[in-house]
């Protein structure tokens, strides 16, 4: 069982803010869903082989980059060829 504090912690970890209404709702929904996920507890086996395929490479060849103005075209804030982001602490 997880409680509202756990959900608040998960929200922080996921960098989303949840309202107190959402918090209540999510807590009960997550408990139902996580309980359902517990069906995985009975799964046996240790191998975790993702795929039998491997080694897909490209050669070390230079291809065109996007022109600076195209790269920046979707940005809402830019300055002298840079993207502008909020300050970091």
């Amino acid at each position: 069982m997880i409680d509202e504090n756990d959900v608040r912690h998960i929200a922080e970890l996921a960098d989303v803010t949840v309202t107190s209404g959402e918090l209540k709702k999510f807590t009960s929904q997550f408990n139902t869903i996580l309980e359902y996920f517990d069906t995985l507890d009975c799964v046996e086996g240790v191998t975790n082989e993702r795929t039998d395929r491997c080694n897909n490479f490209r050669e070390d060849e230079v291809t065109h980059s996007l022109p600076q103005e195209e790269l920046l075209a979707n940005a809402s804030e830019k300055e002298e060829g840079f993207f502008k982001a909020p300050k970091v602490m």
Partner: peptide
């Protein structure tokens, strides 16, 4: 930062 509605530069 790169696309979508912009981030607020007033915040951290």
């Amino acid at each position: 930062v790169r696309y979508g509605p912009g981030a607020s530069l007033k915040l951290s």
